[in-house]
Simulated assay, not measured.
Amino acid sequence: MPEGHTVHRLARTFDHLFRGEAVSVTSPQGRFADGAALLNGSPLLRAEAFGKQMFLGFGPDPAATREVPDEDLNWLRVHLGLYGSWTFAGDGSVSTVHAIGAPRKRIGEQERVLDAAVLAPGTVAVHRSNTAESVEWIVPDPRGQVRARILGQHAVADLTGPTACEVLNFPEMRRAAAKLGPDPLRSDADPQRFIDQVRRSRIAVGQQLMNQSVIAGVGNIYRAEALFRAHVDPYLPGNLVPEETLRAMWDDLVVLMEYGVKTGAIVTTEPEDRDKGMDPAALAEASGRRAVTRQNTDGDPDAVPRDRSFYVYHRHGQPCRICGTTVSIADMQARKLYWCPTCQN
Rank of each mutant, 00 (worst) to 15 (best):
T297V: 07
I221M: 08
G181T: 05
E285F: 07
P162T: 11
K276P: 02
A125Y: 05
D252T: 11
R306L: 00
D196F: 01
D141E: 15
A99S: 15
G317D: 14
A265W: 06
G20C: 09
V146W: 03
P182C: 03
R174C: 08
A11H: 03
H5V: 10
P182R: 05
G288E: 14
R229C: 05
D190V: 15
P184A: 08
G264A: 13
H154C: 02
G219F: 04
E133G: 10
D141S: 15
N239P: 02
A63V: 08
R174I: 12
R274C: 09
R19A: 15
A284M: 07
D251H: 12
L283C: 07
V7P: 01
A282D: 05
H316L: 00
R77T: 00
E3L: 12
A248W: 06
C343F: 04
D307Y: 06
Y235L: 13
L76R: 08
V78S: 05
P182H: 06
G101F: 01
D34I: 12
P280M: 10
V113K: 11
V146G: 02
V218P: 09
S93P: 01
A176P: 00
V68L: 05
V205P: 01
L283M: 14
P103D: 05
G108A: 14
P2C: 13
R289V: 05
N220K: 04
E166P: 04
G181H: 05
L337V: 04
D298N: 13
L253S: 00
V7E: 09
P191M: 00
F310T: 14
G206L: 07
Q145A: 14
P271Q: 14
R66K: 14
W75N: 14
F55G: 10
R247T: 13
L56S: 09
G217I: 03
M173W: 13
I150G: 05
A224D: 10
L185V: 07
V25K: 02
Q212E: 14
R19T: 13
R294P: 00
V118W: 04
I221D: 02
R294A: 09
P237E: 12
A230C: 03
